[in-house]
Simulated scan of single mutants.
Amino acid sequence: MRDHDDLTARQRRLWERAAPHYDRSMALAERLWFGGGREWLGARAHGRVLEVAIGTGADLPHYRADAVVTGVDLSPGMLAVARARAAEIGREVELVEGDAERLPFPGASFDTVVCALALCSIPDPARAIGEMHRVLVPGGRLLLLDHVGSTWLPLRWTQRLVEQVTVRTAGEHFTRRSRPLVECSGFAVEEAERLQAGTVERLRARKPG
């Protein structure tokens, strides 16, 4: 547990340092690698929405007007940027500091849970997905967007080489895949697509009930 807590604390420090310039540093990747992904999430989210690891709030402009949005993030710095973005676009949102692996909400609290570009760096993604399952109502919807191991073997080898550096320095995994963890947590996958040589996955799943 101590080692795990140390990893979580490291991730908090990394995101705190990244918060002021995160959007600028991700702008090119957002356009060329993940383009359309946030719109895809927003179109499918409904009701009481929890965004896990909301970061700087990049998804906020894409939620439907009638969605009631709560965001949770490990980093106060990221939440500050998200709060400013929400104010700028006139979006009401509740922002909470918290850990994806220990979500500070009662069970069956949300109709939709969203997680975008975050499971790649959460220390224990299986535990985080289990928490997402817990806080969803029966029949609730899980929406995920992330980069994953490529379906093209030469590119996946390259991703593994890159991970030798990024996992140690930033906790960033490039060959993780969320779908097996989603299915093991009891979700039924209803929609899935792989893009960009299989390195990007969009996933919609439902909690039975």
Rank of each mutant, 00 (worst) to 15 (best):
M1Q: 13
D5V: 13
D6R: 15
T8V: 13
R12N: 02
E16K: 10
R17C: 04
A18Y: 09
A18M: 11
D23Y: 03
M26N: 10
A27T: 14
L32T: 15
G36F: 05
L41V: 15
L41C: 13
L41R: 10
H46G: 13
V52L: 05
G55P: 14
D59Q: 02
L60H: 07
V69A: 03
V72R: 10
G77M: 05
M78N: 15
M78E: 08
A82R: 13
E101D: 02
P104W: 02
P106S: 06
A108L: 03
D111Y: 03
T112W: 12
D124S: 10
R127S: 07
A128R: 12
E131H: 15
H133K: 09
G139I: 07
G140A: 11
R141H: 07
L142P: 06
L145S: 04
H147D: 04
V148N: 06
G149P: 08
T151P: 07
W152K: 00
P154H: 06
P154F: 11
L155I: 15
V162N: 01
V165W: 12
R168G: 10
R168W: 10
G171F: 01
T175D: 03
R176Q: 00
A188K: 11
V189D: 01
E191T: 10
A192P: 02
E193G: 03
R194H: 14
G198E: 10
E201W: 03
R206V: 14
